Computed example of a mutant assay.
Amino acid sequence: METEPAAASAAQPIVIVIPARRGTMAGSEPEATLMHFTLYSRTYCHLCEDMFNALNALQTPEKPFTVEVIDVDADQALVAKYDELVPVLFADLNEPELCHYFLDVDKVRTLLSK
């Protein structure tokens, strides 16, 4: 008697980590202290692309950071939480969001200046 394969688990979110630009200037931050952002996004979302590009434009050799892009459509729990808000940007997932829809440049610059 053959058994049916186990039901496929829920799809895993698509994650893209953009490495920080490497600076060669003296005094640049060590890799262990890189700022990390999480961007909840979706495919074919022009606001998501705009926020991602605007965020990366703020990166400098002196203040490198990483960006993790998570596709909300790959996880129903994320769709339920962020569906109409994407893009949503976090610097710390234990803290409130930094912004949604459009990048809050002042908030990001404040974080990067710390």
Score class of each variant (00 low, 15 high):
64 P>N: 11
86 V>G: 03
7 A>P: 12
30 P>R: 04
18 I>K: 13
43 T>E: 11
36 H>K: 12
9 S>L: 12
114 K>A: 11
106 D>W: 06
65 F>E: 03
113 S>E: 09
105 V>A: 08
27 G>W: 10
49 E>Q: 13
16 I>Y: 02
22 R>K: 15
75 D>K: 05
99 C>E: 05
97 E>W: 02
1 M>Y: 07
74 A>T: 04
81 K>D: 07
10 A>S: 11
109 R>L: 09
70 I>D: 00
88 V>I: 02
90 F>T: 05
62 E>A: 13
77 A>N: 07
84 E>Y: 09
35 M>H: 13
64 P>W: 14
51 M>R: 02
12 Q>F: 13
15 V>N: 04
76 Q>N: 03
109 R>Q: 13
86 V>K: 02
88 V>S: 00
89 L>Y: 00
90 F>H: 06
45 C>N: 01
50 D>P: 00
90 F>M: 08
17 V>L: 15
76 Q>Y: 01
14 I>A: 03
11 A>Y: 02
52 F>S: 01
13 P>T: 08
28 S>F: 01
94 N>A: 10
69 V>Y: 05
53 N>M: 11
21 R>L: 08
57 A>D: 14
80 A>P: 11
18 I>H: 13
114 K>H: 15
64 P>G: 07
2 E>T: 07
53 N>D: 15
35 M>Y: 09
67 V>S: 06
102 F>N: 11
93 L>F: 09
88 V>N: 01
38 T>H: 03
92 D>N: 13
84 E>P: 01
71 D>S: 14
27 G>K: 12
50 D>I: 06
41 S>I: 00
84 E>W: 07
97 E>R: 09
84 E>S: 10
37 F>R: 04
32 A>C: 12
57 A>G: 09
62 E>H: 12
55 L>Y: 00
22 R>I: 12
24 T>R: 11
31 E>A: 14
92 D>R: 07
40 Y>F: 15
80 A>L: 10
56 N>F: 09
74 A>K: 03
2 E>S: 11
7 A>L: 15
104 D>Y: 01
46 H>D: 08
51 M>I: 03
81 K>W: 02
96 P>A: 14
108 V>R: 00
58 L>P: 07
64 P>H: 14
59 Q>E: 14
62 E>R: 15
45 C>V: 01
15 V>H: 01
50 D>T: 10
97 E>G: 04
104 D>P: 02
99 C>H: 04
113 S>C: 05
59 Q>C: 03
45 C>A: 04
44 Y>F: 12
48 C>A: 09
30 P>T: 02
47 L>E: 11
113 S>H: 09
63 K>W: 14
106 D>V: 15
62 E>Y: 14
85 L>S: 15
51 M>A: 07
28 S>D: 00
9 S>Y: 06
46 H>I: 06
104 D>K: 01
103 L>H: 00
45 C>Y: 01
5 P>R: 04
67 V>Q: 06
112 L>Y: 08
5 P>A: 03
83 D>C: 02
47 L>A: 12
70 I>E: 00
14 I>D: 06
105 V>S: 05
10 A>P: 03
95 E>W: 08
39 L>H: 04
6 A>Y: 05
74 A>L: 00
105 V>K: 12
